[in-house]
């Protein structure tokens, strides 16, 4: 559907900019996508992105936002496991936007 070019490599994306192939992902891809959205990735962003990648590795799905919020709270504490914190980091929606940066498909049930 579309392509992005990161480090001289052309990567396929779907019409919404999600990577087609999980294996194309690298931290540079996340940096590139964030920059397109006018965002600079901080350590807090990376915490969520890495969490998502681990979640996917374990369960083979991208979690729904409610599930993500709860799971983040469990792992990183209640001050991070709430929608206010996550929406501040990812204004386009924590599940959608963070999943995209993490190279995952869009969460099941997201429209």
């Amino acid at each position: 559907m579309g392509t992005i070019e990161v480090n001289g490599k052309v990567l396929e994306t779907d019409e919404e900019g999600y990577l087609q192939n999980l294996s194309d992902w690298s931290p540079e891809v996340a940096e590139y996508m964030a920059k397109q959205d006018g965002l600079e990735l901080t350590e807090n962003h990376w915490e969520v992105i890495n969490f998502l990648r681990e979640y996917y590795e374990e369960y083979q799905i991208a979690p729904a936002v409610r599930v993500l919020t709860k799971a983040i709270g469990k792992k990183l504490g209640p001050d991070k496991g709430n929608s206010k914190y996550l929406y501040e980091l990812f204004p386009y929606g924590p599940a959608k936007q963070a999943c995209k940066y993490a190279g995952l498909p869009k969460p099941t049930g997201c429209v």
């Binding site: 374990e58 369960y59 083979q60 799905i61 979690p63 729904a64 599930v67 709860k70 799971a71």
Partner: peptide, 12 residues
């Protein structure tokens, strides 16, 4: 392989 996903159901 979607069998790991059944283990995610608890979180849902």
């Amino acid at each position: 392989n979607f069998s790991p996903t059944y283990r995610a159901l608890e979180g849902y």
